[in-house]
Each structure stands twice: as structure tokens, then as C-alpha cells.
Design a protein around this nucleic acid. Structure first.
Lengths: 249, 249
DNA sequence: TGAATAGTGTCTTTCAGACAGTATTGG
DNA sequence: CCAATACTGTCTGAAAGACACTATTCA
């Protein structure tokens, strides 16, 4: 950013700092698309909006988010983490910037820009410390049943596409797993997100040759042959594979 | 974004709209990382900042950008395109959102958030309508010689990494080419961006089997065997390949 | 023993890497 | 002819797809 050409002050909110900053500023918000797996299906967290005076989209569902608080939030990611903890209690899941959406029309209160993040939280953690106004919704294709406030349907669609796309060649689904999991469980998570079956042996080869998971001295018991339990290695960085899973047609 | 929890109004700029919007707003800017190829090297466009009253980083180099003008800019991308045309004259190159950077400290004038874009412009167009204060700088590793204003060195680094990364499995370098080009020229562009040699035959196979370029009834003459000239197909969408070029080690 | 799921092995296919070999121009 | 670059072909290797086969548990 360069401070050369300041916009001419029109209608709307203006600043009151000195030195040529007296022009209207857009509203600045942060929204978080929070995914988890519940009941073998991809879910996203939504909150119900209030219906106070001047509230746009009263009682509609929306992505968790809100205005940046310049006194509380050190930076954008800190703001996103704050929203995440407020709604889910999860402290440090996978969190990645998704993009930003800003325009004159997306919020009836004026020119606004939102910084969108997307987060993956483990299944177990997703159920415990949920905020009262928050609720998990299963993904229906690339969206969700209720009509969302603002342009949140578009942001959600972008998040789902980004997730599905990256799952083709990264280890992101590992962040949706509980502490301990088996390879078939991890594969099922991949398949749920991709909505497509994967080859067992190719999947196992890929996962085991990546520096990603390590076996622990425990097995998952069941009504059949027990499965080796694994956990994520300390190296929290996601793994990028050189190929996608299926050749794109 | 949800309008539930408004930040408490502290020091700084406040809005004057009604209905609970009386809290400080961050500054909102857009910056564009503009790449081109010149003299067989990747270059980025920088502008020199002014040194007026209250200007931070006087006379330093910075990425082209500036405040969002809520009266002029319909949305963030329109704002980015405006900056791009102002500095280069190029109307519709490849333009993609890079991410956003926002914090209390990145601008001495207060809490600010920038929406960063990155653009690829063809070699030819890059020379003609350049703004007076703009200048091309060759990439030096992942950065550039002069010290940049704000956190622009970090934004530039992110842009270069994103570009190098995507070039491994996309057709992005095609947007750096002039209208007509040969396959060896396209390959050289790939190699310049990646700073690595590529296999000729694998490269040709990949490019020709993608629905990306089409031969024209012309050849590039030289002191040796002439080369078939190609142009980008009408379908402007970038192609994503299923594999990266070299297996990552 | 049989059902069920975990895990392995084997063959095929695809495509990049390596590199030799052919093609076509100007000098 | 030679130099130089464009372009093609052939072999190899790595990893995915398909799928059969073995392993280990509980009922």
C-alpha cells in the first residue's frame, strides 16, 4: 500500500486522525469457515445472528466472525483465532487464510471487507465447548441448507472447493482426525471430504511413505482384525504430495 | 461476518454512522504484486513513495497500491485492477488474490489491513505505458534489492513462493508470454521462474496435451530450424496438471 | 468356521526423466 | 558441410489403479 492518492471524502464514516487520513474507511471484519467430520459427513459451523436494532440479516445463519477489534486483536490471524476459540473452545487447530471479500454492497451498513479463514478441527473437540448460538450443519454439495447472511454462501463455497482441491494432494484431512486413528479411518475421512472412493493400497503407500504419521503401541479393537493405531508426528506442517489422487479426467 | 460483538471504542478513528458502528476502523488498502519477464529474468514492479507531510517510509520503494476508495471502487478486485492500469496500462492480465495482511503495527498511522493481489503481465505490455514513478526490479532469490516499505518484503516473498509453487503444476507462465510464442520460449519462461532446467520432451508433451495453446500458421525464423508459433486458446482459464514437474525430494 | 475388516502383493497403466537421434534452417 | 536449435522416439523408473490374496479378530 502506498499513501499517495487518498480517496476523496464522500458520504460515510470518516477518520479523525491527522495527516490526510480524513476519508471514509470500509468496515473490516474476519470470518472463519470451521470444518469438522461428524457422523461420516463434512460439517461446517454456523451461528445465528441477532435481531437487535440495525442488525442486518436478523436471525439468519452466518459464518462465525465479526468486526476486527483494533484494541484487542494484534493482527488478522489473532482475530480469527479469537472467533474460533469463542465458538468452539478449540485452541490451535489447522488454520489457513482463505481470501478476502470486499465490496460496496455486501453489507447494507456500508462498504465492507472481510478477511476469511478456514479451520479444520478434530471430531472429538468439535462437540465439547460449543458456543450456545453455534451449530454444526452438514455440507450439502458445496453449500448448506439454510440461506446464509451477507455473501457467506459464496465464501463457504470457496472454502469447500479449496478444501476438496487441497485434499487431492495434501495431508489436510489428518487435522480432522482425533489424537489416535487408524489408516482405514483416515482413508474414510479423505473419502468423505472428496465424496469419492480411494484405492486402499495406493492410499496406504502414500500415507506411510510421507513423513506424517507414526504408529503407536496400540491397536483399534473391533469385531474383526484389529487395526494399527497412528498419531500425527510432531512436525505439524501439512505434507504436499507430487500427484493428485486420481488423474483428472 | 456477524455484527454481534462490536469492539469497544478506543483511541483512533471512529465511524459516525448510526446503529452501533461507533468504533475505530482499521485502514483498508489494496496492494498488487505485478510480475513480468524481462531479459530472461523475473521482474516485479515497484513504485517510489512520496515524502509529503505524515507520509510513512518517505522515498522508499513499495508495491503499487493504496487506500480503497469507497466512492470509486466497486469491490476489492476493481480496486486492484485500477492500481494495475494506473501503473502499467495493462487492462486484463492474469490477476489472482494473494492474501491479506493486517495488524496494529504494519503501518505507523494505525491498525491497517491490506488485500494483496498478484498479477502476471506479458513482456511486451510491460514496457509501454509504465507510470513515471514505477520501475521494474529483477527478483533476487525471493526478494528484491531495495528495502521495501511496510511489510511489503514479506508480501513479495509470499507472492514469489506462490508463483513458483503454482508454476510447478499450472499453466500460469503462459500469461507472461506475448501474443505469439514458441514452445521453447514458453519452456524458457518456466525455467526462469523456477530457476531450474526442465526436460524438453516431457515439457512439450505436457503442454501439447493440455487444452491450452494452439498452433498458428506461422513460424519463428532464426539462424537455425524455425519453430512453430503458438497462441493461447480463447479459454483463458489456467490449466492444472495432476503432477508437479519434478518429484519433490 | 465364517463374516468382516486389516493389510500385502502383483500386474498394468501413466507419465516424467534421461538422452539419443532426426529435421531444418543459415552461413 | 557445420553449427545451432527444433522436434521426435525409446527406454527406464516411480507411483497410482485395479484387484486378488493373506491375516487376524469375534461370534
Amino acid at each position: 500500500m502506498a499513501g499517495r492518492q487518498e480517496p476523496g471524502g464522500g458520504a460515510g464514516e470518516i477518520g479523525r486522525g491527522g495527516a490526510g487520513l480524513n476519508f471514509p474507511r470500509p468496515l473490516t471484519t474476519v470470518d472463519v469457515v470451521i470444518f469438522t467430520i461428524r457422523l461420516e459427513a463434512l460439517h461446517v459451523l454456523l451461528v445465528r445472528r441477532g435481531h437487535g436494532e440495525g442488525e442486518p440479516f436478523p436471525d439468519a445463519f452466518a459464518l462465525p466472525g465479526g468486526f476486527v477489534d483494533v484494541d484487542t486483536d494484534r493482527d488478522l490471524e489473532a482475530c480469527a483465532r479469537r472467533k474460533l476459540v469463542e465458538k468452539t473452545g478449540v485452541v490451535s487447530p489447522y488454520l489457513e487464510q482463505l481470501g478476502s471479500w470486499g465490496s460496496a454492497n455486501r453489507d447494507p451498513r456500508g462498504w465492507s471487507a472481510t478477511h476469511a479463514y478456514f479451520a479444520l478441527v478434530p471430531t472429538s473437540a468439535a462437540e465439547t465447548a460449543l458456543a450456545a448460538d453455534a451449530q454444526w450443519f452438514p455440507l450439502d454439495g458445496t453449500g448448506v441448507k439454510p440461506k446464509l447472511a451477507f455473501d457467506h454462501a459464496e465464501i463457504l463455497r470457496a472454502a469447500v472447493q479449496r478444501l476438496r482441491n487441497k485434499v487431492e494432494y495434501t495431508s489436510l484431512p489428518a487435522y480432522l482426525m482425533p489424537e489416535e486413528f487408524t489408516l482405514p479411518e483416515l482413508q474414510r475421512t479423505y473419502e468423505v471430504v472428496l465424496d469419492r472412493a480411494l484405492e486402499k493400497s495406493a492410499f496406504r503407500t502414500r500415507m506411510l511413505s510421507a513423513d506424517l504419521i507414526e504408529p503407536i503401541a496400540k491397536m483399534r479393537k473391533g469385531p474383526n482384525r484389529p487395526a494399527q493405531l497412528y498419531r500425527l508426528k510432531k512436525t505439524a506442517a501439512p505434507v504436499y504430495f507430487a500427484r493428485t489422487f486420481n488423474a483428472p479426467e
